[in-house]
């Protein structure tokens, strides 16, 4: 054990100074979900399969759907990605999602030709959230 610790004394540490150095994450990590509004057909299988009630899909016009993600509810299992028959949902490895302000955790993917709205941090009017029994 003595040799081992003395060898490590001179070696470069195995840990990194995380917030100051970027953390390397695996390409396969399930992070934030991405939604492509053009592909969505509004079948809502993702909403039904989501274990955490984190997705809301709203019809905002003819064949136009908007998706609201609650990042604080999401458990990042990506079941919605598997469930989606049209591959409108995909998974990214973005993982630094903590926020000081709770409202920023509600992430809205707008339909393509919807009128321009301020970016996500701005307070959105709370859409009705499906309540579970």
């Amino acid at each position: 054990m003595l040799g081992e610790v003395l060898a490590h004394l001179c070696a470069k540490p195995n840990t990194i100074k995380y917030p100051f150095e970027p953390a390397v994450v695996e390409a396969g990590l399930r992070g934030k979900i991405k939604f492509v509004a053009e592909k969505c057909i509004g079948c809502k299988i993702c909403v039904k399969d989501c274990p955490a009630d984190a997705i809301t899909i709203t019809k905002i016009g003819d064949k136009r759907f908007e998706c609201v993600f609650d990042l604080d509810k999401c458990i990042y299992c990506a079941q919605c990605v598997d469930s989606c028959p049209k591959k409108a949902l995909s998974v990214t490895n973005e993982f630094e999602l903590a926020q000081l302000d709770k409202h920023k955790l509600r992430f809205v993917f707008h339909a393509p030709d919807a009128p321009p709205t301020p970016p996500a941090p701005a307070a959105q009017p709370e859409p009705p959230v499906a309540k579970t029994a």
Partner: peptide, 20 residues
């Protein structure tokens, strides 16, 4: 994390097989 997608809750299983 690479195979499953998460360090702890790998969620590799699905009904009828595995997901990845």
């Amino acid at each position: 994390a690479e195979i499953g997608g998460n360090r702890v809750n790998y969620a590799v299983n699905t009904l009828g097989g595995v997901r990845r």
